[in-house]
Design a protein around this nucleic acid. Structure first.
Lengths: 185, 185
DNA sequence: CTGGCTATGTCAGTGACTGACATCGACGCT
DNA sequence: AGCGTCGATGTCAGTCACTGACATAGCCAG
């Protein structure tokens, strides 16, 4: 593998999480992270296109999971129900990592620049969900609106899941949020 | 006023729009914008905290407009209806400036980094709407979900308003999107 | 016409990111 | 064992976003 220890990527992610939590995102330089991970700043930027992306490593996995879950949803599901299947599938990727998610969420909440990136990832998920719905024959603007609604549910459920002191499981948060959404209209 | 011509801020905004459209956001330096506006790079950063913000000048006006419209909504409106009043109020700030909005939207669509900022502004609007709803006594998670739904409507309506060749008025786009949203459930 | 206030200019510095090039270490081939 | 290749890393120099400290120019009040 590499020149020294294996898993430079993993070491960089852990080092970044530690440093962002200890002194804050803005007070951490790329060089700091690299040093703690035992590599060079240049190597950091070979693994991650920028300082923020290091906190969003598995996000493309969630995209795929959502897309596939929607493709596999029962043919007679409503657009919103199908989209919510995607959200639930994403949730399964999170269940095991509650503590990690909480630590990460605190860092993101403290830094507008990281919130921007998080919102961009959510927008990418929205697009993926909308595409998956169109693939099932759902026309616009229903596809787009159902996608936005599903991601809203995902978002609201996620916020509750990481901020509640006594964490219910993520699927329950999603179910509650979805029910509350339907109650709105 | 200033040392030379008045309205440095306006000149900077116009210069930035031109340059971003001509060569793209990434190919434009802050110095380029300042030069075209007849000031120094340093002065640019006195008016705007960063290169992106120059495209989001009136966004806090929309925040206030939304908040106040929701506060003034009829007491018996449903949370979602009240939130949509806020969206309609924002729309009134846009009606006159369709051409500007289209040019701006093209620039934003071409640049992920600007999309991030736009999403952050939408998130700020979501928070403002949710606050306004809570002020009316709407409890969470309904306030949050209604706010997200209203901003979804705003967003979907806006995208249609700036991409349709034959632009209907913004209020109509909002009404259509809201109706489609209700039809989802 | 003088002192103060505000918008601007100047300058030096930090840090994110990039491209070009050198080097190291593992692995396969002979 | 010796050799060549290749991918991961290091080194270096450069651009540009952004910031703090300080100088200066026009304006207005007295």
């Amino acid at each position: 593998m590499g020149r020294w220890e294996p898993d430079a990527r993993g070491r960089l992610i852990r080092a970044a999480m530690e440093l962002y939590a200890e002194r804050g995102f803005d007070q951490t330089t790329a060089g700091d992270i690299a040093e703690r991970a035992g590599v060079t700043e240049r190597t950091f930027f070979r693994y991650f296109p920028d300082k923020r992306e290091v906190l969003f490593d598995g996000s493309d996995l969630m995209l795929k999971a959502a897309y596939e879950a929607i493709a596999d949803a029962p043919a007679d599901s409503s657009p919103l129900d199908a989209a919510l299947e995607g959200v639930v599938a994403c949730g399964r990727l999170l269940e095991d990592r509650h503590e990690f998610a909480v630590r990460r969420a605190k860092i993101v909440a403290a830094t507008p620049s990281l919130q921007e990136r998080e919102l961009l990832k959510l927008a990418a998920m929205t697009d993926a969900v909308a595409d998956a719905l169109r693939q099932r024959g759902v026309p616009d603007p229903s596809a787009s609106l159902a996608a936005h609604s599903a991601i809203t549910v995902f978002h609201v459920a996620f916020v509750r899941w990481v901020s509640d002191d006594d964490p219910p499981d993520y699927a329950a948060c999603v179910a509650d949020a979805a029910a509350a959404l339907r109650a709105l209209t």
